[in-house]
Amino acid sequence: MIANYLSLSVILFCFGLLGVISRRNVFTVFMSIELMLNAANLAFVALSRLHENMDGHVLALMVMAVAAAEAALALAVVILLHKHKGNLDTNVFSLLRG
């Protein structure tokens, strides 16, 4: 049973990873990151059930909070960038090149 949860979680995580790597739109990227976080949350909650302690639940809650904060910040940044550029394609943001 736990294996199923874990597999699902890992698959979701990989989807998120793929999304971050392959997508151009800033929103999609952030959504993919959220997906990764939620994959982790799933694993936390499932494992918490497995180990019969609450640590996983607590972490899942914390992750949610942090994801929210990050999303808030991301939204602010995206609005800012949209104001500057009028576009949300990551390729447009090229003032800085490593």
Binding site: S9, F13, I33, L37, A40, L47, L59, V63, V66, E70
Partner: peptide, 17 residues
């Protein structure tokens, strides 16, 4: 940073597991 955070979270989940 958020990407790294996601990695950490997943890692923490697996360690916890």
């Amino acid at each position: 940073g958020a990407f790294a955070g996601a990695f950490f979270t997943m890692g923490a989940a697996l360690i916890y597991g």
